[in-house]
Structure formats: C-alpha cells, structure tokens
C-alpha cells in the first residue's frame, strides 16, 4: 500500500469512502494502542510501587490486615470484596432479569414506557447517591441482621445490588426486545402459551446477551469504592466477617492511601489495587467461560 503512487485529487474524490475507511482504521488502531499503553502503564506503575516495599510480598496472602501491628495481608480483604460482589450479584440478577423479562414480554405498553424512563434514570444515578441511600435507609433496616448501624458486608452487597440491578435490567431489556418476533409467533402458532414461547423461543437465543448484561452490571459495582466505603464500616482489620463492620480492598484504598507514607504500607495498598484488577479480570474471564458453556448446551 505504501508503494502505490499518491492518488490524484480526482481519484481521491472518487474513492472517498475508501480513504475514509483508512482514516477510520488508523484512528481505531491508534485508539486501541493508546488504551493498551495506558493499561500497561497503570499495571507497570502499580507493580513498581509494590516492588518499592518488597518485604510485604510474603505476607500478602495472609487473612489479617492491620497496619498498626505490621500485619499486611490482603487475603481477608479479597475474600470480603468477592463476598460482597457475589452476594450483591445474587440479589440483583434474578430481580433485574425477571423485571426486564416482564417489561419486555408481558407489560402493557401504558406501564412499559414510564417504567423504562424510570429505569434509564436509575442507570444514571451516581454511586455516591446509592451509597448515601443505602447508608441512610439500608443501615436502619439492616441493623438487626448486620450489627450496629447496619454497617458491614451486607450493606456493601446491597450497594452492589442497587448499583448493578438497573444496568442489568436495562441491558437485558434490550436483549429481549432484540429477539425477532417471528420466533415468538412461531412458538405461539405451534400452540405454546406466552410464557412457554418465552421459555422455548426467547430465552435460548437471549442467553449470551443476558450473561453480558449481568457482567456489565457487576463490572460497574466491582470497581466501586466510595459508595461501598460509605457503608462497609471502615474496619478492615475485621475483614472476612458478615456481621459487623468490615472492609474491602476498595474501601482500604480510599481510606488509607492519602495518608500512607511508609514504604511497606504504600506497597500493600498498591498490591490491593492489583488484586482488585485481577478480581475484575477473573470475573470477566469467568463470565466468558459461562457464556461458552451456556450457549453450547441448547445447540
């Protein structure tokens, strides 16, 4: 391509769409290169920061985290982070999927339109507002279950659920409406009820998209720090517990990073960021494996 002579002005005008394509392709290439570079730089900086306090590396897997006694294990925090994500996901997924299914397949149009608008609004709610809402409303409600003030992993799971459910529902709705009507009509023509048509004709086609919806929703909650740190109770030394105040990888980062100055403490916090990244990647890869398993079975 480089060896071709430069095209004349007339030729350019003639092949306008082709040169536009070339520009678009190079822009896309530059964009993805930039993204890869930024990711690599972030990873590199974090690894460098960890290596500045290499003495913390052997203890990182331990369950106990207490900078005051020099115990800098992240295992407990990683567990509580995963637990809040899992619990929140379990809470949000059925609610959001069934809600979306009803909205897409069964709801009368007069209810459908206002509910969709409401859902769109809920997707855009900033996480801080979710945190505040859970801290004020959920805290009082969870007092008996979760301990004083309702702070802890249960409240954190509630934040995860409240943050991911609207996104899951909105994407799932789009997935359901994308299924061609012909499939439903075919099933109904064969004598299926409306629900049977959904089960036989819609769900198998939608599975891949639905898993995508759940992953998208949880991804929004996984990296969430502020809202979770507002309700988790700010006591990371008590990390892997469901009752009472606790902490997560994100809440420790947001609470302690600004004031940390010891090399070992800073290295541990950078390692916490890396573990959080790894958890995100694991969630993503796990869900892809899930999609592959799910879509193979019906076929």
């Amino acid at each position: 391509m480089a060896s071709l002579p430069p095209p004349s002005r007339k030729a350019l005008a003639h092949r306008g769409s082709a040169s536009g394509q070339a520009i678009f392709a190079s822009l896309a290439r530059a964009g993805s290169a930039l993204l890869a570079l930024a990711t690599a730089a972030t990873l590199g900086l974090l690894v460098l920061a960890v290596l500045r306090g290499p003495e913390v590396l052997p203890g990182l897997a331990s369950l106990r985290y207490n900078p005051g006694t020099g115990e800098l294990g992240l295992g407990g925090l990683a567990l509580s982070t995963s637990a809040s994500l899992l619990l929140g996901g379990l809470l949000a997924t059925p609610l959001a999927l069934f809600g979306a299914l009803w909205l897409a397949e069964l709801a009368p149009p007069s209810v459908q339109r206002p509910l969709l608008a409401l859902l769109d609004g809920a997707v855009a709610v900033p996480s801080v507002v979710v945190g505040l809402w859970v801290a004020v409303v959920g805290g009082a409600a969870l007092e008996r279950l979760a301990g004083p003030g309702g702070s802890g992993l249960l409240s954190a799971a509630l934040v995860v659920a409240a943050m991911s459910a609207p996104t899951i529902a909105r994407v799932a709705y789009a997935v359901f409406t994308a299924v061609p009507d012909a499939l439903r009509e075919g099933a109904i023509a064969l004598g299926a009820t409306r629900w049977e048509a959904v089960r036989v004709a819609v769900l198998p086609v939608a599975t891949r998209g639905l898993v995508g919806a759940v992953v998208l929703g949880l991804a929004r909650a996984l990296g969430e720090t502020i809202a979770i740190s507002m309700v988790v109770g700010g006591r990371p030394s008590a990390a892997p517990t469901l009752r009472g105040a606790s902490g997560t990888l994100g809440s420790v980062l947001v609470d302690e990073y600004l004031d940390a100055f010891r090399a070992s403490h800073l290295a541990t916090l950078s390692a916490a960021a890396l573990v959080l990244l790894a958890l995100g990647a694991a969630t993503h890869l796990g869900s892809r494996a899930l999609v592959r398993g799910l879509t193979r079975r019906p076929a």
Binding site: N66, P67, S151, R235, A245, D255
Partner: peptide
C-alpha cells in the same frame, strides 16, 4: 500495641470506622 497496634491506622477490635 501488639494486639491492636499503634500509629495512624490500627485494628480496633470493635466499633465502626468513619472517615
């Protein structure tokens, strides 16, 4: 100091932490 710790961040055995 060996059980709860010393310094700017310690592991209080009870309570709720706020910023």
């Amino acid at each position: 100091s060996s059980e709860v710790g010393r310094g700017r961040v310690v592991g209080w055995p009870a309570g709720v932490g706020v910023r």
